[in-house]
Amino acid sequence: MTETLLDVRNLRVSLKTDRGMLNAVRGVDLQMKRGQTLCLVGESGCGKSLTAMALMGLLPRYANITSDCFDMAGEDLTQKPQSKLAKLRGRDVAMIFQDPTSALNPTLTVGRQLTEGVMRSEGLDRAAANARAVEMLDRVGISNPEARLTQYPHAFSGGQRQRIMIASALMGRPRRLIADEPTTALDVTIQAQILRLLGELQSTLGLSLLLITHDLGVVASIATDVAVMYAGRIVEQAPAEDLFHAPQHPYTRGLLRAIPVPGVTPRGSELPAIAGRVPGLIGEMRGCAFRDRCALGSSECASDPVPRHGDDAGRFVECFKVTPGEATQ
């Protein structure tokens, strides 16, 4: 059994709004394992970024976070995760963001931004911290790193800035890395380079990588495991290969069907979209959130709890209508 670096059970995030409580994350179970690249996929608003923020303790004050179990780096974070996470950030868990242009402070040098975290948390002096920064910049493929420490972010291209963000996240030598849509703001060729870099770092450093994305192409190229999120819950999780070859949840199947395959999908044909809309998340929700859009949906789908079918390998699906092992597609 591989080492579990993060274990969170029944994570819930709710936000107070004018129209009532918005339950954005409704009971997520998530484990990050050593050497694993877990992709959390789902459409905008499904709660995947909020889940990442909750794991980092970066949610705003008005967000309410609860869980039955929240273990990271030997610390029990079930109570007051936000304040306890402040000590772990940077050292035990680090994060890279969607848009590297806005995630780097325009008024501070790259060297300062890379070194300030470890100078504080590890008490490194300037020379040692700079040496670490040079090592990390070199690792992420920034050429001539010594000279570039004194430059400001605007002197770098978008792809280079994302590399710097990755270097910055690695400075504290964390074992868990959370990447929130790290390639969305980059153009396609750069996306591939950044994904390759993340994959390399993940295997050479033995990181556990949690990658949040809505792009199934990204998932296919990097994931070892995939968790599909819908309306605040993980509806299906499986090793990447299994998920692509034998998706089980009707939502996962719908997502995969909506991807055109060159040579297979006839030119000019309409792609099958999932009908209907995502349900509103204000107030309590009963049963399966996907039932109104689901071809298999029936009255039993409105009851609680939604059965979870799982196997020992960590694969599970939450659905009334399908069970793992059933022939699909």
């Binding site: 963001f97 402070n105 504080r120 963000m165």
Partner: peptide
Amino acid sequence: ATDYVRAARAKGLPMRVVIFRHALRN
């Protein structure tokens, strides 16, 4: 509300440093 303030917090910097070094300067 910017990402770089969030990124500064993600590094584990205390709020005081985030406010005065990262936020106030901008």
